[in-house]
C-alpha cells in the first residue's frame, strides 16, 4: 500500500513538471518569434505540409523550427539532464553546447540558449523543494509529446492562436 502511494506521488510530480516545462518552452519560443517564419527551407516545407493536412500555417512554422534546430524545448530537456548529472555547472556547460549546436544548424541560437539557462535555474529551484531532476526529464518528454506527437492539426492551431496574441 505504501508503494502505491509512493508511485502515485511520483506520477503527480511528473505531471506537474510536465506543466512547468510546457509553460517554460512555449513562452520562450513564442517570445523569440519562432512561429513567425521558417528559419530554414526544411522548416517551411514542414509548415506547408502541416497546413495541407488541415493545420494552421504559423503553428506549422513553429513545429518545423523545433524539428530543424535545437530551440528552447531542446534546451529545457538537455538542461534537466545536465542538472541531474552535474548540478548548475553542468547546466551552464550544456547551454554552451546548445549554442554550438544551434550554430551548426544555421540558427542564431537565442531561443535555445535562453531556454537552457532559465530551465537550469527552474529545475534547480524545484529540486530544492522536493522534486527530482528525473521528474523533469520525463515531464519534458511528455510536454514535447503534446506539441509534436499527438495531433499536428490541433497543436498548430493552438500555437497559431498564441502567436496571434503575441503579435497583436
Amino acid at each position: 500500500m505504501l508503494e502505491f502511494y509512493v508511485m502515485l506521488a511520483e506520477g503527480l510530480r511528473v505531471l506537474i513538471a510536465a506543466g512547468v516545462c510546457w509553460l517554460n518552452f512555449v513562452t520562450i519560443d513564442v517570445f523569440f518569434g519562432l512561429p513567425k517564419e521558417g528559419g530554414v527551407s526544411g522548416a517551411t516545407a514542414i509548415a506547408q505540409e502541416v497546413e495541407k493536412g488541415g493545420g494552421a500555417l504559423h503553428g506549422g512554422y513553429m513545429l518545423g523550427n523545433i524539428v530543424s534546430s535545437p530551440d528552447a524545448s531542446a534546451g529545457t530537456l538537455l538542461a534537466s539532464c545536465a542538472v541531474y548529472a552535474a548540478g548548475i555547472p553542468g547546466g551552464l556547460v550544456m547551454a554552451l553546447l546548445v549554442y554550438i549546436g544551434n550554430r551548426i544548424c544555421y540558427d542564431p541560437g537565442y531561443a535555445g540558449t535562453t531556454g537552457c539557462i532559465t530551465a537550469t535555474f527552474i529545475v534547480y529551484a524545484f529540486t530544492q523543494i522536493g522534486f527530482l531532476a528525473t521528474d523533469f526529464i520525463a515531464g519534458m518528454v511528455i510536454a514535447i509529446l503534446t506539441i509534436q506527437g499527438l495531433s499536428h492539426v490541433h497543436a498548430s492551431r493552438l500555437l497559431a492562436t498564441l502567436w496571434r496574441w503575441r503579435s497583436a
Binding site: 530554414v40 527551407s41 526544411g42 522548416a43 517551411t44 516545407a45 514542414i46 518545423g64 524539428v67 530543424s68 534546430s69 535545437p70 531542446a74 530537456l77 538537455l78 550544456m94 553546447l97 546548445v98 554550438i100 549546436g101 551548426i104 544548424c105
Partner: peptide, 19 residues
C-alpha cells in the same frame, strides 16, 4: 548533446533536401 544535435542536423538536412 552529441546525439541530440546530430539527430536534429539529420532531420534538418532531410527536410531541406526534400524541399
Amino acid at each position: 548533446a552529441a546525439y541530440f544535435v546530430g539527430s536534429t542536423l539529420e532531420s534538418n538536412a532531410i527536410a531541406s533536401t526534400w524541399s
